[in-house]
Amino acid sequence: MQEKQKAPIGVFDSGYGGLTVLKEIVKSLPDYDYIYLGDNARAPYGPRSFETVYHYTLECVQWFFRQGCELVILACNTASAKALRTIQQNDLPKIGPGKRVLGVIRPTTEVIGNYSKTGHVGVLGTAGTVLSESYPIEIARFFPGLKVYQEACPMWVPLVENDEYDKPGADYFIQQHLQQLLAKSASIDTLLLACTHYPLLIDKIRKYSAPGTTILSQGEIVAASLAEYLQRHPELAEKCGRNAAVRYYTTDSASDFNRHGRIFMGREIAASQVDLTAGNGIKAVL
Rank of each mutant, 00 (worst) to 15 (best):
R232W: 00
L37N: 02
D189F: 03
A79K: 02
E268T: 15
K82I: 03
A210H: 08
G128Y: 01
T126K: 04
R100V: 09
L236D: 06
E24M: 00
L102T: 02
V21E: 04
I221Y: 00
Y54M: 07
A224I: 02
E138C: 03
Y36H: 03
A227F: 06
L131I: 01
D163T: 11
R262Q: 09
V11S: 05
G261I: 08
E235N: 12
Q180D: 11
L276E: 01
K239S: 12
A183V: 11
M155H: 04
F264H: 14
L37T: 10
K23S: 12
G266Q: 03
G212R: 14
S185C: 11
L191K: 05
T251K: 01
I139P: 05
E24W: 00
D39S: 11
A270F: 01
G169R: 14
T126V: 02
P136Q: 13
T250G: 14
A194S: 13
W156R: 01
K94N: 13
A270L: 14
K184Q: 12
Y34T: 08
C240R: 04
I215Q: 01
P154Q: 07
D39Q: 11
G122V: 07
E268Y: 10
W156I: 08
L178R: 06
R66T: 10
L29W: 04
K147W: 00
N77E: 09
K117G: 15
K4G: 12
S272G: 02
S185I: 09
Q62I: 10
G219T: 07
T251G: 12
K117Y: 10
G261R: 02
V111C: 05
R85E: 10
A140R: 15
E235L: 14
M265I: 06
S225A: 15
I9H: 06
L191Q: 07
Y172K: 08
Y32T: 06
K283D: 10
Y115N: 10
Q180A: 15
L74D: 04
Y208E: 09
Y249M: 12
E3D: 08
C60G: 00
Q231D: 13
R262I: 00
G266M: 08
T108G: 14
K147G: 08
K99T: 03
S28R: 15
D189E: 13
L201H: 02
Q273W: 02
T213M: 15
S272A: 05
V21A: 10
D189S: 10
G145P: 11
R42Q: 09
P30Y: 14
Q175G: 14
Y32A: 05
V53I: 14
V148P: 08
K4M: 07
E238A: 13
Y56H: 10
S14N: 14
Q218W: 00
R42D: 07
L29I: 09
Y249W: 01
